[in-house]
Amino acid sequence: MKLLKTLTLGAAALGMAVTATAASAFEPSKPIDFVIMAGKGGGADKMARLMQAIVEKNELAGKPLVPTNKSGGSGAEALQYMKGATDPDHTIMVTLNSFYTTPLRQPGLKVDNMAFAPVARMAEDTFVLWVHKDEGINTFDEFLAEVKKRGDKWVMGGTGKNSEDNIITDHLNEAYGLSIKYIPYKGGGAVAKDLAGKQIQSSVNNPSEALGFYESGDVVPIVAFTNDRLPMFPDTPTLKEEGGDFSYFMQRSVVGAPGMSAEAAAYYTELFREVYKSDEWQEYKSKKSLMGDFVSQLDLADYWEGQIENHRTILKASGAIK
């Protein structure tokens, strides 16, 4: 009996000690589950593995990040998985805009974005309109004229239905009275390849996806869907310069599972701040024409709220949601 009592007391004391250290500063006590909301080999996957590599190379975290791809259902699988995480303090995820669009399109998932811990926004990816050089199109006006002439024989390839690429194509059709045909693909790489092979007529690839064929001279940038010209394409105007009123970005963020403690969230924010500051990340960011500063915690939550409303409007306008 006495032994039992001692043990119980001991356990209680131990428990208190553990809570006390957790309250003062969080340190991961086991490998961190690093969920990737996309398939292996895609843009998000490449980026996630770069982050993992930076963490490991510079020994930034006490425990390793273990990447797992959960690509099912435009991120639905990953969101469900995060919701049901058994140890939220050791579960983080790399995410993109499907973080908002998938819950908006599938209310049945019952995913509340704001319940996720806003760890860090590492960058905003940009979108550029590309055509094949053989089309002989160099300006946005020429593009509009040619697309109008070709009617629905003009094809835009993009990643996924109701995705970022689809949203931009819908905008072009609506704002300029075009009838571009949108064909969804599984990944941005396949889109870039089919544009280079003249199987499709245009794309709105991220610079990172189209870069190879841009450098080889196969594809030509027409406009950037950004607020300012991209440093990598100084001669390519933005849509705003061409008189449009539209810009679109994709977040490249890290979030914590719903139910993550504030201490753990703060720990991961600091971890990814270090990643963001690393030379490797900065180099990748400038080489791939990524924009956006480091945003975390409350500022990131505010950013999400704005983005959710923004996407609700866009998806309603295109008829994807009611």
Binding site: L50, E215, S216
Partner: peptide, 25 residues
């Protein structure tokens, strides 16, 4: 082309990007 023809080459592609290579034409 920078396009993986199989899931494994997709991971290899990610690797090349991490080492600072630009697969492509």
């Amino acid at each position: 082309l920078g396009i993986p023809g199989s899931p494994t080459t997709a991971v290899l592609l990610a690797g090349m990007v991490i080492w600072g290579l630009e697969p492509g034409p």
